[in-house]
Amino acid sequence: MSKVLIVAEHADGKANPSTAKCVACAAGIPEAEIHVVVLSDNSEAVANEIATLSSVSKVIRVDRPDNENQLAAVLAPQVAAMAEGYTHIFGPSTTFGRDLMPRIAALLGVNQVSDIMEVLGSHSFKRPVYAGNAIATVEAPTGLVVVATVRAASYRAVSSDAGAPVESVDTAADIPDHSRFIELQAGSSDRPDLQTAATVVSGGRALGSAENFDLIYKLADALGAGVGASRAAVDAGYVPNELQVGQTGKIIAPELYIAIGISGAIQHLTGIKDAGTIVAINKDGEAPIFEVADIGLVGDLFAIVPELQEAVS
């Protein structure tokens, strides 16, 4: 039998949706008993939320003031200290999980399975390599704990209609004081979150300027969509980095993805390959984005986008 511990990602008293997707991944391991640990300065609300996720049999709260800022160097020793008895320790392959999980793995003396996209068995998984240009089947050593990150875009969140018990524990881990959080600079936005929105509208370098990117925001608002961008648009300074979609940005799986003025570099395509329907609008009919698009429209975005916005308003 397998016993899986999932490290929850959360912020502002809410679980990140990636947590419920990690649970879905873990539920694919044969005969898995799934626990979720919430490390926080005040985990009550998050723990109660996660307790409703189906397939979860226990939620473990670890509350201490040091956990407020979710620093990997602070969290990793606490997770490592409670690892005994677990066959698997999973986290999301968001920047939170990618920062934290390898530190846990090293403390436990094991390598990590990064970006699980499919579970084949308790120690056998599929994961993307070479920016998604190849899919590797990997086997983790048996007899050692499996530490892994889960590619959230490959999974649908489990339902939240259950009621697992919640318990609080203290960890005896030594917490270092060599790392300090200073601040988070985040753009405030009322738009749907890029990683969970059902529809995402993204703009690329062809927008030409930060001002012109307004076209993307307006269309997104008309559709109730989240907003993304290509790396080129971020590098050009049109939008902040957290909007970047792709291998080095966010990997997303919306039902509808509309790529506007994006040529479709492979690293961008890696970030959207799990989208339901991909629409591409680009003036270059030969652009690689059209190779993956379900619906393509070749033409001038500055004419098309306002017209489309009008049509869907």
């Binding site: 912020a11 620093l71 968001t94 060599h178 200073i182 988070l184 985040a186 902040p240 980095n241 957290e242």
Partner: peptide
């Protein structure tokens, strides 16, 4: 560069 924006940290 993290999912929610830019995080500033200070490390020894």
């Amino acid at each position: 560069e993290i999912d929610s924006g830019l995080e500033i940290v200070e490390v020894d």
